[in-house]
Amino acid sequence: MSLIERPPSRADTPAQQRPAPKDPGGWRLGFYRFDTKLMPYLLVAPFFILFAVFGLFPIIFNGVVALRNWRLDDPTQTGWAGFENFSKLLGDDDFWNALINTFGIFILSSVPQLLLALMIANLLNRKLRATTWWRVGVLLPYVTPVAASTLVFAVFFTRDGGMANWVLSLVGIGTENPIDWRADKWSSWIAIATMVNWKWIGYNALLYLSAMQSIPKDVYEAAAVDGAGPWRQLWQITVPMIQPVVVFTVILSTIGGLQLFNEPMLFDENPAGASGGSNGQYQTIAQLIYKVGWKDLNLGYAAAMSWALFLIILVVAGLNALATNRLGGGGKR
């Protein structure tokens, strides 16, 4: 990016322009113009071309499909549907159920995730033995492929002989009737949120940590002299000073949380059905979209759901960013 932003330095410019009148239309001048005017665009072009092909085009095409009837299992149903798919969405119990599940799991995962990440980052920011080891250690869950870790968690949260139930039985919970994690909304949400938290806490902690290290130490010293304890320092110095990073992580975890797919999918007892439990207890919107598109083979309706999800994410991410901005003495900017 520095190539684009940096203006040609003053020293170069006259030196290169001086010979120009002697040799009008020379290739040097042409190259120079090309280099300053066009080169930056050429250099950023690959990203925008890829974005157009893999980002913009799918979004627009998805919007077109959302306004059409497109059923794979019945090729005779085709043509424009107008807003029929969207109006069907409003009365679809499955969609609202999935929306509630998605938000439930999102809150259960994002809030503890970011709070714990903050605590861990705060701990890692102190003088510890083997600092690098700890810092790499918290990132390990993030490096683990989600399919691998989720499969382990799926075994962890089984009814008979699962480790989660074994741990709970040590404190006397569910010794008679072990918890059937997939049967209820609350238990399946906790299980899935645990998988999400496990994966992302370390990642967020490292982001916070890198931001914390740019906070000058004398601020803390001054606060300590004034009698502020570690807790107060965290909330009144650290959080406000790393606030841009906090906003960033909140937006990212909102997007990720609302698009949750792999975890509920691999947690499902019947992945071929993609129904998110026997009664849709933990079917997220992304999973419902997949089911409607590739199991019910109704691509038009699935596209409408995708667009609805896109809009929901925009609104929620915006609201969250706004709320976080106000948090912790923000709003000055």
Partner: peptide, 22 residues
């Protein structure tokens, strides 16, 4: 039928709910 697969999954899920005591 055309919808045999999804219908089977739906009924299987109901049986599972009975087995889960729901």
């Amino acid at each position: 039928g055309r919808k045999n697969g999804p219908t089977r999954v739906a009924v299987e899920n109901v049986i599972t709910r009975v087995q889960q005591g729901k």
